[in-house]
Design a protein around this nucleic acid. Structure first.
Lengths: 212, 212, 212, 212
DNA sequence: TATGAATGAGGTTTCATTCAT
DNA sequence: CATGAATGAAACCTCATTCAT
């Protein structure tokens, strides 16, 4: 077996560590995950983590940065995707919002653990570093805005930045609470996931179609 | 069983410990607060905590139980208060919802750290013990339902349990995210607290006045 | 109810503390018994212990000294008792030794916990203080010696100090091990208490009736 | 399951920890020895103990298990050794018992601290786990029995299990008391070690040669 | 690069002892 | 005398981090 070129091998290790942490974050808070556990999950030694990252916090940062890049790429993709076309071709605003609500739910299901980690991590940071994350909110707004424009006639509210931001904020907050809440308190479990999403879409629809 | 201090001095100390924890929970998760810190904040020695509570977890439980009793009492008070009368005497549903939204925001501002601690604590508990907390959600629903009834003619949605529950859930989720989020991501800071509350009330109003 | 005279009241408390410790020593080593436990068992407050004794170790010392006085008194009593007469009037040396063995076993059953505590306590003491305990061994020898004299014709060994001391030592060691050993290793449980005592008496009998 | 160190270095450290504990047990009860002390004695940091053993109790268990294996091996060795041949070729039962008594004393001198630790440890165990230790008693009996058979004509007592067990029990109890007792109470110090052993052998000899 | 043994600071908890009441 | 709240040293244990191999 030929040895992997050093750089490539290091890249692979780095990725395995990242995946390991990502995986463990789905079940536990970052603080409750030990370096040894991450290493074991990644199938490498714990010391190796410190060849790749300055320390444990820095490791989490790296994961979050990677995620950031990925989510920006994904949002860009969405903007030009069939999905976007579908949103625009829906029967009307209500229908479009239901699709958006379902899409947002699905996206956030996948990323909830990361977003929680971000929230957690942001508490120990300077204001400066936060800007990148604020960018993402703006991007999400850029994605929603064009769809709203398509159904502008149905809107009772100005199709401005605040409106779009409130929508993004709304979906984010509701879903993150839902997804990170323990199962026994979940609305989605109480009334069914689809019904839940539909009700959430109705909040958004009602908001948009009621004059300010 | 947690022991029931008989002496006045002990009661005072117990309260100081509780207040210290309550205060620290406003800035940090329970897991990140050390017993020594709590004791220092309370102005007592660390060992003393263990004459009042079996261990650190039990200490948090005691705080949450106290809070539970307080919140139940408060909800009962609200049900018969002038506030309730005000809600019912508002100019209409929209006006009532704004008042409710403002009231809910103010209440949750005070309790957000405790509710976070509850969510955190619930993760390590049996289903049985959760029931008390579910009761509280039902109580909140009992508080909102009568107000909705007053404005029943304005509702496009059935004035049933699901509707009221969605409302409670909505306020809870949105506000908890807002209040526990770090300030740099806060909508209330971006657009102003009153405007934020007003927008949130509009989500609720739109939801209620749009046919299902 | 008239208040007890101070001195008497203090004496009673002291005795209750002593009894509490004595009682607890039957189930646990001194180190594993907390001051609070002793106080609770005695029905007094923990601080009170320190009005009567300098510290925890001093408290044990006091108990042991009391025991010492009691045992000396008891040995004196035995020397002039019917029991002694019985030993001397037994059918022969073997019979006498069986009675002595049974008596010693019964006495040590009652005192095993104290003797253990003594052994434990002696490890942290100066040689000087030990003398009192050596006295007791001599006393026990004084008790046995006259009985041996009665059956002197049966002895194959000189009726001297060493012989008597070996006997005392023998009973002490065997019984203390037996009584303090955990039940699953006990010979008395394996072959029956009476049989065990009889075998032990036979060791003594064989020892005494075999020429040096 | 205790983990099985794979690396040589780890094995050495493990042994150093074991030796350190073994050494400290010679002067103090396990409960009175702190983890920090053990680590200091072993020349390592305290935390390291926990990479080798689950906790302090588990650490003692490991030591005892190692000892158990060693003692079983040793008993097997004795059974086929020159020593055994010597016992059998002694001038007679009395001579043989003196040799056995001396041998047992020497063995127990080396192991007294461990046997004390076992006794102590057994108090917090289930009956099941004790069986291994009972095996050892039986093994000791197996070692003595063949010697007794050689001198069967001198025995006045049946050469059966009870007899052999009483002998093992006798040596164990007497010697453990003697060796663990503090020096100022020791018979061996009072009358000389060899004399003491000789007297002890005489107890055994008298027991065996006196009809039941 | 990679390993995992080793470190040591820091966390929770216990308990003998003191002291205000 | 008596109480029990309060103290603080010391115990066990965890885990991020370092470093010899």
């Amino acid at each position: 077996m030929r040895r992997q070129p050093k750089q490539v091998r290091a890249q692979i290790t780095r990725q395995r560590l990242m995946n390991a942490l990502d995986s463990l974050l789905k079940e536990r808070d970052f603080d409750l995950i030990s370096v040894v556990e991450i290493a074991k999950e990644a199938g490498v030694s714990s010391g190796l983590l410190y060849s790749h990252f300055k320390n444990k916090a820095d490791f989490l940062d790296a994961l979050l940065e990677d995620y950031q890049a990925r989510i920006v790429a994904r949002l860009e993709t969405v903007e030009q995707s069939d999905l976007m076309a579908e949103f625009k071709a829906a029967g009307g605003l209500r229908e479009a919002l239901r699709e958006i609500a379902a899409f947002a739910y699905q996206q956030l299901s996948e990323d909830a653990h990361i977003l929680r980690a971000i929230a957690h991590s942001l508490k120990s940071r300077s204001a400066l570093e936060r800007e990148d994350w604020q960018d993402i909110r703006l991007r999400a707004y850029d994605t929603i805005a064009p769809v709203l424009t398509v159904y502008e006639t149905e809107l009772a509210r100005p199709n401005d930045e605040t409106t779009a931001q409130m929508l993004v904020y709304f979906f984010n907050s509701i879903y993150l609470e839902e997804l990170y809440r323990d199962p026994f308190q979940s609305m989605a479990d109480d009334i069914g996931k689809d019904r839940f999403i539909s009700e959430i879409a109705d909040f958004a629809y009602g908001y948009l179609t009621t004059p300010r």
